[in-house]
Design a protein around this nucleic acid. Sequence first.
RNA 1: CGCGCAGACCGCUCUAUCGCUGCCUUGCCUUCGGGUGGGGGAGUGGAAAGUCCGGGCAACGCAGGGCACCAUGCUUCUUAACAGGAAGGCGGGCGAAAGCUUGCAGUAAGGUAACAGAAAAUGACCACCCGGUAUUGACGUGUCACCACCGGGAACGGGUGAAAAGGCGAGGUAAAAGCUCACCGGUGGUUGUGGCAACACAAUCAGCCGUACUUCUGAUGGGUUGCAAAGCCAAAUAUAUCACGAUUUUCCGGUACGCCGGAAUACAGAACGGCCCGUUUUGAUUCUUCGGAAGUCGUGAGGGGUAGGCUGCUGGAUCGGGUAAGUGAUUACCCGGGUAGAUAAAUGAUAGAGGUUUCCUGAGUAAUCGGGGGACACAGAACCCGGCUUACAGGUUUGCGUUUUUU
RNA 2: UGACCCAUGGUGUAAUUGGCAACACAACUGAUUUUGGUUCAGUAGAGUCUAAGUUCGAGCCUUAGUGGGUCAA
Length: 126
Amino acid sequence: MVVFTLHKEERLCSQKLIEELFNSGDSFLSYPLKVVFLKTELPQAQLVQAAFTVSKRNFKRAVKRNLLKRRIREAYRLNKPAFYQEIAANELQLAVMFVYIGKDIAEFPVIEKGMISAFKKLLGKI
RNA sequence: CGCGCAGACCGCUCUAUCGCUGCCUUGCCUUCGGGUGGGGGAGUGGAAAGUCCGGGCAACGCAGGGCACCAUGCUUCUUAACAGGAAGGCGGGCGAAAGCUUGCAGUAAGGUAACAGAAAAUGACCACCCGGUAUUGACGUGUCACCACCGGGAACGGGUGAAAAGGCGAGGUAAAAGCUCACCGGUGGUUGUGGCAACACAAUCAGCCGUACUUCUGAUGGGUUGCAAAGCCAAAUAUAUCACGAUUUUCCGGUACGCCGGAAUACAGAACGGCCCGUUUUGAUUCUUCGGAAGUCGUGAGGGGUAGGCUGCUGGAUCGGGUAAGUGAUUACCCGGGUAGAUAAAUGAUAGAGGUUUCCUGAGUAAUCGGGGGACACAGAACCCGGCUUACAGGUUUGCGUUUUUU
RNA sequence: UGACCCAUGGUGUAAUUGGCAACACAACUGAUUUUGGUUCAGUAGAGUCUAAGUUCGAGCCUUAGUGGGUCAA
């Protein structure tokens, strides 16, 4: 069954987990995104918890940051089912953070392309 | 019509697919905590921004008075309040006009005014005038001239400076001066008229008249911190140290064998979130025969831990419309609506259609029509309101002015 | 989100009521030295984050903006 939802349980909200992720997680680049991930125990019964962030350093206006985060979230939401199947097959739990590192506001197709290649690389690393 | 000025308002729209966050309703399962599915409806601004003012609300504090500190500054009104707003007054600047913009407590006492300049406010450096003393010269025996010193007169002239002691004319004088007079400017008092008032106008009298600034004076207002406030639940850690209380477990002292308190002194500390008086309170000392040490427990401070949830949280000085009062800000009444609550932080993504505008291009004398491409601003709620300020593609509308030009 | 602070030569700091923007290090030139360092002598380098206002005059006072930083569970 293909599910395109993205409820709160699928998002990474715990400040503690995020701190741990940045301290001890691995990372790689998939332009225009930087992916930080960590195999760990999650508090909820979810395969993956993901978070999305855009630096205030590169985009001063809240409107632009929100726009980019929404686009990344859409890209994640629409392309995750295949990714989930692989994770479920390996019986893993994963925390992931997507950081936007581009300097300009990218169009949706560009972000989607980066997201798909990020999924491929991520599966390769695990 | 065009151009301009002021005010008010709007801030791209629709459809499809896939989603996000609350709310309402409902089916199924349930260990009654909840889990899972369906349906309905809601979900970003004029500035949500800057955090520049003012309030609500919350916690803490609070006899009272004074000083300090901060803020404000023509008048009247408005408001919950304001450094906001409205109407008006006076002065300066811009504009042809509509209008825009800027300033406004008080100089009674005090302080300051660099450099320059004689001097920055009891103004005398040069030049001017008078008197005295001494020298020199001329004429020829007391005058004149020159120069020096002393004493006085005097703001008319001089350069400086941001600013130089009302302006100009006449009289006056040894030389001068509002010293006097006419006209003009300005200040203060009194009276009258208009206005709620600031103030304006008129009459009259007076002294004859510096300027700017604020650290100065006076008036009014101001407790502090802010929803990461504050409260509750869960989870977690270690109670070092300090204060108070309880206990009699132990020891010592005193006893009236119950137990272990009270009063005075203004000596010291603390509180009144700056200081002082004052007040309150605690300790200390003394007196009255009256306690001390260790342990345990509790409360508070402090330390340590946690980074999850709930309340606060959205119905309010509320929004829309109407009527009335007022020049207006605004106020009163009536009717209707039921209004975002997120928390690594929702309100979107993609596709198509339309709208506005611009560019290229084709048809046409032109109005206009067709095709293609681009653009559609500033900007994202975070406890809530009232203002201010700043950013902003384009558009709608009301009132007013109009030097030139056209009709 | 709320509260607050700062901005002056390349760097770190001064500037008394508002009256000529100062000092140290660094840089450059010269001397000393075989050379470098040290030392000595000298030189240049800002118009005070930006824009308005008050004032005769603004680094300082007022207003608006820009950039950077701090604190609060």
